[in-house]
Amino acid sequence: MKDQKRIAIYGKGGIGKSSTASNVAAACADEGYKVMIIGCDPKSDSSITLLGGRRIPTILDLLKQHLDVNEKDIVFEGYGGVKCVEVGGPEPGIGCAGRGIIVAIQKLQKVCPSMKDMDLIIYDVPGDIVCGGFVAPIRKGLVTEAYILTSGEYMPLYAANNICKGLAKIDTPLSGIICNSRSVTREEEIVRRFSEEIGSRLIAFIPKEQIVQDCERDGFSVLEKAPRSDIAQVYRKLAKAIMFNDQSVLPGSLEDERLRELTK
């Protein structure tokens, strides 16, 4: 198998994982990489902005109907040839979304030989790792690198810190911290300190820009709709950093007290 990057981006719900993942995917595609994005959130919102706002059938949608699932039924090409997959899931409050992720990913591996040809596979996971299913991509050896997305606020950092504990517990190295800004004072410094204290490093600082949301509303990534914007350049840089990153560490974690101090 060729050198393949298989990454997952973790972080508090709503912090910007999906939008960062799709912009990074688009940027990598622009560079000529073969990219796949696998949305593991039952909300199925990871790939919309790569598909011009279109929603695709999810793996679990099809499995539910007892259909014979093939690659062409679940893998859809979006912007720049990015292959988009959505796992899907049950309605909120019913059944077991965690089991759904496990089942869907097993199915995907089975019916999708082109996964092997990818240069980059991004697993876009839900914010809260509530049960085993949500770490299935890592547990099943599918993900080789984990990233954490956070802002400089206390709660997202608290979540990030918890994720570090979780990663260490399941022996998964962390490849870096990405700061997605919420315009907090001294934000970059706070997140950099955090990154260093847990033994990792800050690999990008993404500013908060209205244009991200404007593009998203119209169903596009920034790379597609506003390729000349400053923030498009930030995503390109991040994409490069990820593609060339070869450092990862088993993360430590901070005491809650230290975390509060850091964000004061």
Binding site: L60, L63, K64, G89, G95, C96, G100
Partner: peptide, 10 residues
Amino acid sequence: DENGFVFGGR
């Protein structure tokens, strides 16, 4: 079955 586990069986 697996579907039942994921989507429930009401």
